[in-house]
Amino acid sequence: MSAHGPSIHFRLDARSAVAPYRQLVDQVRQAVAGGRLHGGDQLPSVREVVTQVTINPNTVHRAYRELEHLGLAEGRAGLGTFVTESPYQSDAAAQYEQLSQELRKWTQRAHAAGLDVEDMTDLLGRILNRDARVLS
């Protein structure tokens, strides 16, 4: 890994129903959970991000605010936005690993039952949407 360049390269799927700011938040969360971003890592500045990805800078600000709200990042005045040092990060990574293993087993069962990738995605989407309605 290069010592230069941004700590994370964001991607944006303009066709997704997931709001753009939410996509950035998810990418940081996944990078932290997957161990690719660590406490103390600096997130790229908004100006850097808009040269990497064709994205509205307000969306990046919004995503960083949300990350701060979630306690995953902190703004340091005049310096930028940094991934939060957290004692729970190793727990989070382990939990993430366990959840992906369980899901992998589930997808094998689903595959054996005749569901293809689209069927599984659709099913998960339906369940999540229902949950979202219950939660909100």
Partner: peptide, 26 residues
């Protein structure tokens, strides 16, 4: 978008590319 990031410029743009709407517009 760099100009918007640097100067908080307001932009009103017409487009036929619906993909641009979700990525650069709010």
């Amino acid at each position: 978008m760099s100009q918007v990031a640097e100067r908080a410029t307001t932009v009103v743009l017409s487009t036929h590319a619906l993909g641009d709407v979700a990525s650069i517009c709010d």
